[in-house]
């Protein structure tokens, strides 16, 4: 897979890795040094209860710099903010990212993002990922095209329990970014891809759209198709397009979205969604083997982890492939 990236960014999201702290928000952070970690901890104490904090285990790996000290905090929200806990955590994240060099890379429950500048296999080694057990993994190798390679610019991008990886370049970035800003989101400008995470958060968590309709917003069908739909269905799709036109993700995109168990895609179930742009300028391949589901922008990625899948298929342009986890995780 290293043929498809250039060593300027690799990353993973893992779900179900902190069962003992499943009710806490796990803040994965990149700080410069111990001193900065103390400053961040001080700031956190003013706004949340810290249950535990620790260095994220790493090992020295050739190709990964010592630029950051990865750290995690397990926190929960004081009672007075309880009704608005998720937004409280988002606001806090924005404040930390804005006012310090420290970077919160994920803040969901029972999940975490591990990323760095390097090839994905180096990043996995660096974070000792072999020690984690997860029910859902996202992985990404970056070949940056519109911003420089940076730890923050590596994928996945995450907000609460939602993480995304994206292969492509978003030509509607300016429109998406300004649309999100009017809903209170703040884009770091580290790369175009992060807007997808925020759009998904807005549509699925805040506006409670089902996955199929959220996908319809990101990759809407053409007016010509909409015009031919049965009346009631057309009314819905038309309303979505008119309302969320600025949320359309234009340009080549092969996107994977993971939603953890704490929030939910549908009925509280953990989900993984694969989605391409509406004219499929990037591929998307899915496969099943027993009760595993694989999704990737190249079939070779699937074959690398699963030699003989039961079956392999390619979802249509702009049509979401959805995998759900049954039962508790």
């Amino acid at each position: 897979m290293n043929e498809r990236c250039n060593g300027l960014g690799g990353g993973f999201a893992a779900y179900g890795i902190y069962p003992e702290y499943r009710d806490c928000y796990a803040l994965h952070m990149l700080v410069k040094d111990y001193e900065q970690k103390e400053q961040v901890a001080e700031m956190l104490q003013e706004h949340v209860n810290i249950y535990k904090d620790e260095k994220i285990a790493t090992r020295t790996v050739r190709g990964i710099s010592q630029d950051y000290l990865p750290w995690r905090f397990f926190v929960d929200v004081p009672k007075k903010y309880a009704t608005n806990a998720d937004n409280h955590i988002i606001d806090l994240t924005i404040r930390i990212n804005d006012t310090s060099d420290a970077l919160v890379v994920s803040n969901g429950k029972n999940m975490g993002v591990f990323k760095a500048v390097g090839y994905p296999d180096q990043v996995a080694d660096f974070y000792k990922l072999e020690k984690y057990e997860a029910y859902l993994w996202l992985a990404h190798g970056r070949y940056p095209t519109n911003t420089q390679g940076s730890w923050g610019g590596a994928h996945p991008f995450s907000i609460l329990d939602c993480s995304i990886v994206h292969n492509g370049e978003i030509t509607s970035y300016g429109t998406n970014k300004r649309f999100l800003e009017s809903y209170g989101y703040k884009c770091s400008n580290a790369t175009d891809s992060e807007v997808v995470a925020y759009l998904w958060d807005l549509l699925v968590r805040r506006h409670k759209l089902p996955i199929e309709l959220a996908s319809e917003v990101l990759a809407p069908r053409f007016w010509e198709q909409i015009d031919r739909m049965p009346a009631e269905e057309r009314r819905i799709i038309e309303a979505l397009r008119i309302t969320y036109g600025s949320a359309m993700v234009n340009g080549p995109a092969s996107i994977l979205v993971a939603n953890g168990s704490g929030l939910s895609g549908v009925a509280g179930k953990s989900t993984m969604v694969g989605l391409t742009d509406r004219i499929k300028l990037r591929p998307m391949v899915c496969a099943r083997k027993d009760d595993y589901t694989f999704m990737a922008s190249e079939e070779s990625a699937i074959k690398a982890v699963c030699k003989n899948p039961d079956f392999v298929w390619a979802p249509g342009a702009g049509k979401p492939a959805v995998a759900m986890v049954n039962g508790d995780v």
Partner: peptide, 16 residues
């Protein structure tokens, strides 16, 4: 040319 297939994605897109 800008890789955009609907006018909505140009609207307010000052990045372009």
């Amino acid at each position: 040319a800008a890789g955009i297939n609907s006018i909505e994605s140009l609207r307010g897109n000052r990045d372009r």
